[in-house]
């Protein structure tokens, strides 16, 4: 008996649309995906979109307006499996850096001169799991093509995705790069989730942390090591805050009180 095709929807909340673009960039594979799965909704690629029951919803972007929130709640209601794709969805992204609501509102006023809008209410940017249950996380700014394809293939076969839980530092060793920390350059590789194949260190550039904090990284030991190497707390937190989104609060809490 022929199995029904899996119904998939790809959605963009507030962000740079980089993850949807990366999916479009899968070109040849994309044509296979359109054959293997029933793509019900993918705004960037097609105009005949249907919003019904879904087996898998892939959602990128952070919740940054009331409208984003309503859309997310609706997607969650009609999807069996919800996957957060990209850093904005998994951790909030760059725009979630203002953690304090007053600081956020103050900055909103500085950019727009006022905070009220007629079309939708702005909200402090947050990752998807601040509002709904997220089944799987595909991190990255943007997501990686191979990791996306392997995740989707596993989901199509009815299995949960298998992602790296270790930091970029491990991938960097696999590529046999010289360690930038040994050259006195502050690299966030030991603290950042893997999956990019250590692209920046492979270009002689420090990891900037764009996949968000790694689940299994040893924050306190690395922080202590960086302090010993002469980097200060302000610099480490400033660099980590660029891409950690709301996860920076956890990082800051775990290094609190750690001494040289």
């Amino acid at each position: 008996m022929k199995k029904d095709k899996l119904k998939i929807g790809i959605y963009e909340l507030t962000g740079c649309a980089g993850d949807a673009l990366l999916i479009l960039d899968c070109e040849d594979e994309l044509i296979n995906i359109f054959h293997a799965a029933d793509i019900r909704s993918f705004l960037m690629a097609k105009s005949d979109n249907i919003d019904g029951e879904l087996d898998v919803a892939l959602v990128e972007g952070s919740v940054s307006t009331e409208r984003d929130l309503q859309e997310l709640l609706d997607i969650r209601k009609r999807s069996k499996v919800l996957v957060a794709i990209g850093l904005c969805a998994t951790a909030g992204g760059n725009q979630a850096a203002f953690l304090d609501p007053r600081e956020w509102e103050d900055n909103l006023k500085k950019v727009y001169g006022r905070t009220e809008m007629t079309h939708t209410k702005p909200l402090q940017s947050k990752p998807l799991n601040a509002y709904v249950k997220v089944d799987h996380y595909l991190p990255g700014c943007p997501i990686d093509r191979e990791q996306f394809l392997s995740t989707l293939t596993r989901l199509l076969a009815g299995h949960p995705p298998e992602l790296h839980r270790f930091p970029v530092c491990v991938e960097c060793k696999w590529r046999e790069n010289d360690c930038l920390l040994n050259r006195g350059i502050l690299c966030l590789g030991p603290l950042t989730a893997a999956g990019c194949r250590a692209v920046c260190p492979s270009h002689n550039l420090p990891c900037v942390g764009c996949w968000g904090p790694a689940e299994e990284a040893n924050y306190t030991a690395e922080y202590q090591l960086l302090m010993e190497k002469g980097f200060d707390r302000e610099m480490i937190l400033r660099k980590m805050s660029t891409f950690s989104g709301t996860a920076i609060a956890d990082f800051a809490a775990r290094i609190r009180g750690v001494k040289k």
Partner: peptide, 20 residues
């Protein structure tokens, strides 16, 4: 109408280094 939420990029750069 642009439904993208406010991302405040100009403010996110304040206090950062040019590399950041």
């Amino acid at each position: 109408i642009i439904n993208e939420g406010p991302r405040l990029f100009e403010r996110l750069t304040i206090g950062k280094t040019p590399e950041e």
